[in-house]
Amino acid sequence: MTKNNTILIVEDEMIIAANISLQLTHLGYEVTGIVPRAEEVLQQISKQIPDIILMDINLKGDLDGIEVVHLIQKEYKIPIIYLTANSNEAHFNRAKETNPYAFVSKPFKKLDLQRAIELTLVRIQDERNTDKSLNLLTEEPFILSDCIFVRSHDKMVKVCISNILYIEAERNYCKIHCKDKEHLLVMTLKDIEEKLMSNTLLRIHRSFIVNLSHIDEIATNHVVIAKKAIPLSADLKKKLLLHIQKV
């Protein structure tokens, strides 16, 4: 985890705020500002969005820290670490509704604050990695006339139509079965069928698209490809036989 992460301090006790700022600077973090009043928080964030906000719950004024966080979360997704000298159940339950990343009770030791921030940064990185993985996984494949480019880790891999044995639906996913391996697509079978431009791939069942070139047997209610029996819908059998003649 790299340092120089940015932190905004919202604390109305300026001596405490200055001490926190000094500790954070010594730890290698960048303090984007010290805000003593709830009404000034959104204005400060609009100037520079911090990586983390240290939020005192018991702010002086019309709004407390929890109410400020609710306002922040309407516009921003910024991890919150609460600072509080009041650990009663009512405060905790209200704060819990905002899904904070940590609580640090006053008075706190430097190590307590350091660990809370480090754990928050680890969680932020984990969430970013998860989001990145989901974005990669959900990227739609490129379906061309002779191949399909599918996502594999951090790259797009070419899968030749000629190597595809059949495509099987699994809820909102599809699995491409090839001669040597399988590929998972976050795409429905219906969407794949609509985008296919190959004359050799044909849907023969609600859950299967097959490669006509690899069919070994055609039975009354199934076909066989690579020793696997694949169901054949009665209403699609005629369509299959017509396409077989053209392949």
Rank of each mutant, 00 (worst) to 15 (best):
K3W: 04
L8T: 01
E13S: 12
I16A: 13
L24C: 04
L24W: 02
Y29M: 04
Y29L: 08
V31M: 09
Q43F: 09
K47M: 14
I49L: 10
N58C: 14
N58T: 13
L59F: 07
L59N: 02
K60W: 03
G61R: 10
D64E: 13
D64W: 10
E67I: 04
V69N: 01
L83Q: 02
F92P: 05
N99W: 03
N99V: 04
A102D: 07
D112G: 02
R115N: 14
V122H: 09
D126I: 10
R128G: 06
T130H: 11
L134K: 13
L136S: 10
E140K: 12
F142A: 09
D146K: 11
I148Q: 04
R151A: 06
D154M: 08
M156P: 05
Y166R: 10
Y166T: 07
I167K: 04
E168D: 08
E168R: 05
E170C: 09
Y173D: 06
K175G: 07
H177T: 10
C178S: 12
V186D: 06
D191R: 02
I192L: 15
I192W: 00
I204W: 00
S207Y: 01
V210T: 05
T220K: 12
V223N: 02
V224T: 14
I230N: 01
L236A: 08
K238A: 14
I244M: 08
